[in-house]
Amino acid sequence: MLDGILQWDRDTFIYLNNLGEEHYDVFWSTVTKYPPWIPLFLALLILIFLKFSKREAISIVLTLLVMVVSVETVTNLVKNIVARPRPNNTEEIRAMIRVIRNPSSYSFFSGHAALSFSIMTFVVLNLRKYVPWVVLGFIWPMLFVMSRIYLGVHYPLDVFVGAIFGVLSAYLFYKLYRFLILPYLR
C-alpha cells in the first residue's frame, strides 16, 4: 500500500510540476520566499494589536513565536529521521521535471507548508471573531505550498502532511494559550 501511495505521489508531482511554464518562473520563485510576505505579517501583527489589549497581544505574539520554533524543530527532526530525498535530488525524477530551485535538504515534510499553515491558522483562530475576513489570509499558505511543487522541491504528500501538521500544531497552541495563558491575563 505504501508503495502505491508513493507511486501516486511521484506521478502526481511529475504531472503538476510539468504544468509550469517558463514565463511564470519568476512569480513562483518570488512567492516561495518569506520577504515578499512581510507586509502580510505586519498587517496581521497590527490587527492583533488593534483587536486585543497590549498584554493579550504580546502574549499571542509570544505564543506564536514559541509555536514557530516548535514547528520548525519538529519539521527538521522528521525530515532527518525520514530522510526522503527531494525530487530535484532524485536522478530518475530529475530528468522528467522542471527544476527551478535546488535545495539539498530532505523533503518530507514541507517546512514551508508546516510554518505557513501553523502561522495562519493560529492567527485566524485568534482574530476570527473580530475580523471575519482574516480567513482570506489562507491565500498565502496555499500559494506558498503550490510554489514548492512548481519549483520541483516537494512532492504533494510533503506539502499536504506539512499543512496538516501546521494546522494541528496551531490548534494545539491556540488551545494551550486559551487554557493556560489567557486566564492569567484577565
Rank of each mutant, 00 (worst) to 15 (best):
I97P: 13
I97E: 06
I97D: 08
I97G: 09
R98L: 07
R98G: 03
R98E: 02
R98Q: 09
R98Y: 06
V99F: 06
V99S: 02
I100L: 15
I100T: 13
R101W: 15
R101L: 15
R101K: 15
R101H: 15
N102S: 14
N102W: 15
P103A: 11
P103F: 10
P103S: 11
S104V: 15
S105V: 10
S105R: 14
S105E: 09
Y106R: 15
S107N: 13
S107A: 14
S107T: 12
F108Q: 10
F108L: 14
F108V: 08
F109D: 03
F109R: 14
S110M: 12
S110L: 09
S110K: 12
G111H: 12
G111S: 14
G111W: 08
A113I: 08
A113Y: 13
A113G: 06
A114Y: 06
A114K: 10
A114F: 09
L115E: 06
L115V: 13
S116P: 08
F117N: 03
S118P: 05
S118M: 04
I119Q: 14
I119M: 15
I119F: 15
I119S: 11
M120Q: 13
M120F: 12
T121N: 13
F122D: 01
V123M: 09
V123L: 13
V124L: 10
V124M: 11
L125P: 09
L125Q: 12
N126R: 12
N126V: 07
N126Y: 07
N126P: 10
L127N: 02
K129G: 01
K129W: 01
Y130V: 05
V131R: 13
V131P: 09
V131A: 08
W133M: 14
W133C: 13
V134M: 03
L136I: 12
L136S: 09
L136M: 14
G137C: 08
G137W: 07
F138A: 06
F138H: 08
I139Q: 05
I139C: 03
I139S: 02
W140Y: 11
W140K: 13
M142D: 03
M142C: 12
L143S: 01
L143C: 04
L143Q: 03
L143E: 00
F144P: 05
F144V: 10
F144K: 13
V145W: 14
V145E: 06
V145G: 04
M146T: 05
M146L: 10
M146C: 04
S147H: 02
S147F: 05
S147M: 01
S147Y: 00
I149K: 07
Y150S: 02
Y150N: 02
Y150G: 00
L151A: 04
L151R: 05
L151W: 06
L151D: 01
G152W: 01
G152Y: 03
H154W: 11
H154T: 07
H154K: 15
H154G: 04
Y155N: 10
Y155C: 12
P156D: 07
P156W: 10
P156K: 13
L157D: 03
L157A: 03
L157S: 03
D158M: 12
D158K: 14
D158S: 12
V159G: 00
F160P: 11
F160T: 11
F160E: 08
V161A: 00
G162M: 05
G162L: 01
A163C: 07
A163H: 02
I164Q: 03
F165W: 04
G166V: 01
V167W: 03
V167N: 05
L168V: 09
L168P: 10
S169V: 02
S169Y: 00
S169Q: 05
A170Q: 05
A170Y: 00
A170L: 06
